[in-house]
Amino acid sequence: MIATNKPKPSLESLLATCQVVTGKQVIERQKAKAKQLEEFARAMEFEQQNNRVKAK
């Protein structure tokens, strides 16, 4: 029985299939997440300020 090794994928093919993330992509994701958290905090603050008790 002869074991055949699969050829290693190239960097281009890994990047094309999103199996590898570059440093630039990591930084962009971190910035997007920080922006989303900031927006969420503003929305929560707005909701707390404008929270009115509804009369029954």
Rank of each mutant, 00 (worst) to 15 (best):
Met1Ile: 06
Met1Cys: 03
Ile2Asn: 08
Ile2Asp: 11
Ile2Thr: 12
Ala3Gln: 11
Ala3Thr: 11
Thr4Gln: 12
Thr4Leu: 14
Thr4Lys: 10
Thr4Tyr: 10
Lys6Tyr: 04
Lys6Asn: 08
Pro7Leu: 14
Pro7His: 07
Pro7Asp: 14
Pro7Val: 13
Pro7Ser: 15
Lys8Met: 15
Pro9Val: 09
Pro9Arg: 15
Pro9Phe: 05
Pro9Leu: 15
Ser10Gly: 09
Ser10Ile: 04
Ser10Lys: 14
Leu11Lys: 01
Leu11Pro: 00
Glu12Gly: 02
Glu12Asp: 10
Ser13Lys: 08
Leu14Cys: 13
Leu15Val: 00
Ala16Ser: 13
Ala16Leu: 09
Ala16Asn: 04
Thr17Trp: 06
Gln19Ser: 07
Gln19His: 04
Gln19Phe: 00
Gln19Ile: 01
Gln19Cys: 02
Val20Pro: 01
Val20Tyr: 14
Val20Lys: 12
Val21Gln: 15
Val21Asn: 13
Thr22Ile: 03
Thr22Gly: 11
Thr22Val: 06
Gly23Gln: 11
Gly23Phe: 02
Gly23Thr: 04
Gly23Ile: 02
Lys24Tyr: 01
Lys24Val: 07
Lys24His: 04
Val26Arg: 14
Val26Pro: 00
Ile27Ser: 07
Ile27Gly: 00
Ile27Trp: 06
Ile27His: 06
Ile27Lys: 13
Glu28Met: 06
Arg29Cys: 05
Arg29Leu: 08
Arg29Met: 08
Arg29Lys: 15
Gln30Trp: 02
Lys31Gln: 02
Lys31Phe: 00
Lys31Arg: 03
Ala32Glu: 11
Ala32Cys: 08
Ala32Trp: 10
Lys33Asp: 04
Lys33Ser: 05
Lys33Met: 03
Lys33Gly: 00
Lys33Gln: 09
Ala34Ile: 10
Ala34Ser: 06
Lys35Asp: 15
Lys35Ala: 15
Gln36Met: 14
Leu37Asp: 14
Leu37Thr: 03
Leu37Ile: 05
Leu37His: 05
Glu38Gln: 14
Glu38Cys: 08
Glu38Met: 13
Glu38Val: 08
Glu39Val: 09
Glu39Leu: 08
Glu39Cys: 04
Glu39Tyr: 01
Glu39His: 07
Phe40Met: 07
Phe40Trp: 10
Phe40His: 08
Ala41Asn: 14
Arg42Asn: 14
Arg42Gly: 02
Ala43Phe: 01
Ala43Ser: 04
Ala43Met: 01
Met44Gln: 15
Met44Tyr: 01
Met44Trp: 01
Glu45Val: 05
Glu45Ser: 06
Glu45Ile: 03
Phe46Ser: 13
Phe46Glu: 12
Phe46Gly: 02
Glu47Lys: 15
Glu47Asn: 12
Glu47Trp: 10
Gln48Trp: 06
Gln48Ile: 11
Gln48Tyr: 05
Gln49Gly: 02
Gln49Thr: 07
Gln49Asp: 12
Asn50Thr: 09
Asn50Met: 11
Asn51Tyr: 06
Asn51Glu: 09
Arg52Glu: 09
Arg52Ala: 01
Arg52Gln: 03
Arg52Cys: 01
Val53Arg: 04
Val53Ile: 07
Val53Ser: 02
Lys54Trp: 08
Lys54Asp: 04
Lys54His: 04
Lys54Ile: 15
Ala55Asp: 00
Ala55Phe: 01
Lys56Cys: 05
